[in-house]
């Protein structure tokens, strides 16, 4: 699908002045504002303790902010959100197909009424042959693919990913990076992706939100204007290196300022 320029994308979700202070007085997130627009691939990049996971939990509605507000300009319905955690988080007692079916099942749908969507999602992540397998029969990378298929099976308007590839080996991680981008091209979803890897964030995203710790806050936004589709060649290009340096510099200046 043709990529809409950053400035012309309609907003999906807006965070305004979000603050999260835990009971002990620790400020996890201070004055975070961010507009997530349709078609964005946003990375939240920062060291541990910068509140990127807290920000993601607030977006998912799992944590209430102490101050500030979250707004969904065109309203939010059930199934508007897909989530991928650092662990595959599959139900071990259910087959691959049943795991992907879960978001529909919780909304009271029968398997037969959404069978096509479930199988299509599995086909998109290349696991249609494994629909009857149990999670323990799959490798780590395959489990993560199932988790991604589950997150996108309802065609959500926003997919949140919390360091989904951090636990995988590098070869698998690169492969999944490529596949994730190909998938995004195909279904045109909006992604907010938490990572602590500069390289991963540059390869995947068009907007990198650089965050700093103590207190967790947004320090800068870096735009990666390299065109999609990005392939393995992009990984070794000068353009990629330049963007990595820019993101890395932003990260370092943020950490020095702290």
């Amino acid at each position: 699908m043709p990529l809409v320029p950053l400035s012309e994308r309609p907003p999906v979700m807006e965070l305004a002045g979000i603050n999260k202070t835990f009971a002990g007085g620790v400020v996890a997130l201070d004055e975070m504002s961010l507009a997530v627009n349709a078609g964005d691939f946003i990375s939240l990049l920062g060291p541990s303790g910068c509140g990127k996971s807290t920000a993601l939990r607030i977006m998912a509605g799992l944590t209430q902010p102490t101050a500030g507000k979250i707004d969904w300009p065109s309203g939010q319905k059930a199934g508007d959100l897909g989530v991928v955690f650092q662990e595959p988080t599959l139900m071990p007692w259910a087959t691959v197909a049943d795991n992907v079916f879960l978001p529909f099942r919780l909304r009271g749908k029968t398997y037969n009424s959404v069978k096509d969507e479930v199988l299509e999602a599995l086909r998109l992540v290349g696991l249609e042959k494994f629909q009857k397998s149990y999670p323990r029969e799959l490798s780590g990378g395959m489990k993560m693919r199932v988790s991604i298929a589950r997150a996108m099976v309802t065609s959500p308007r926003l997919i949140l990913m919390d360091e989904p590839f951090a636990a995988l080996d590098e070869i698998t991680r690169f492969k999944l990076n490529n596949d994730l981008l190909a998938l995004k091209e195909k279904i045109g979803c909006t992604v907010v992706f938490v990572t602590h890897s500069v390289f991963e964030s540059v390869f995947l995203s068009d907007r990198i939100v650089v965050m700093a710790a103590r207190p967790g806050r947004v320090v800068r936004e870096v735009t990666v204007d390299a065109p999609y589709p990005r392939t393995e060649e992009f990984r070794t290009s000068a353009d990629y290196a330049a963007h990595c340096r820019a993101a890395s510099d932003a990260l370092h200046s943020a950490m020095e300022a702290a």
Binding site: A60, G79, F85, T89, L102, R107
Partner: peptide, 18 residues
């Protein structure tokens, strides 16, 4: 119960019985 699975059920708006 796995904490992430519990969170996932919350995000999808699962009822207490589900």
């Amino acid at each position: 119960v796995d904490h992430n699975l519990r969170d996932l059920f919350r995000i999808y708006g699962a009822s207490r019985w589900q």
